[in-house]
Design a protein around this nucleic acid. Structure first.
Lengths: 138, 138
DNA sequence: GTAACTGCAAAATATTTGCATCCTT
DNA sequence: AAGGATGCAAATATTTTGCAGTTAC
């Protein structure tokens, strides 16, 4: 596990620092998406708020994580699959937000249905967010 | 037009005030979704920031508008279709965000594809946000 | 040693709440 | 007249920026 973390950072040419290792570990351990707020809460050793912002930004830039659109104002982050390149994410899975427990998870096994757009539109990316009740809360 | 505005407010048991009329008018005129920020910009007569927040909240509560999930942090609002009830929106259309001009529009004519969820999950709502290039920018 | 990263302070921005006043009904 | 809506002030919360000190490589 520790090894995998270092490897990901190295592959993306990011210096291996405690903060980054810790935050990346959180993502690897968690099967649901994390908001900035969650990260601050879940990390024992306190890192500066600003460091968390910058770390998330760095991970975003490198395509290690991506944001998940949510209808409420919160931004959630989740790990990208391996084939994401810098700036171009190709998440062909859907996101599920549980209305009860608030967890946001990536349903990797459910593929994004294809959407037929009107003439003239060009689609780069399709995001699907399903909300309802998760396995535990149902 | 003016008549329609008053009618909507009345139907939802909201007092008819200048601010509400003006903001609702904006939504009716605009064919793209609006962020809080857009609303402040587009309204000549200045209403208090707080009034805009409260107006949007009131419209949300009544099911007049709904939020559109976006991957960046901005929250956009758009008019609901007639059959939205308080607290339960059934927007069976998809949203399109243009990466060039930033406009967010509702593609009413494109239906949300059905999604098959894993065992145990219950879907209340499916949000689809497509990003790419719109008719004008393509 | 150098470039990159972090923490602190502070600025800028966004959102919420309380309360007195004003407007709609 | 009464209840709801607004504006203002202020409290919170969120995000960004600059800079000096520290750490990774």
């Amino acid at each position: 596990m520790k090894k995998q973390i270092v490897e990901i950072l190295r592959k993306n040419q990011l210096s291996i620092t405690d903060g980054r290792k810790k935050i990346l570990e959180l993502f690897l351990e968690s099967d649901s998406a994390l908001a900035h707020h969650d990260i601050e809460e879940k990390i024992q050793e306190k890192f500066d708020r600003v460091t968390v912002y910058r770390t998330l930004q760095a991970f975003m830039d490198k395509g290690i994580i991506h944001t998940i659109p949510t209808a409420d104002n919160s931004i959630k982050y989740a790990l990208c699959k391996d084939d994401c390149e810098q700036g171009h994410h190709h998440d062909d899975h859907i996101h599920f937000v549980c209305k009860q427990c608030g967890q946001t998870i990536c349903l990797d096994e459910v593929h994004v249905p294809s959407v037929r757009l009107p003439q003239g539109y060009h689609a780069d990316q399709v995001e699907v967010v399903v909300s309802g009740l998760c396995k535990e809360c149902n």
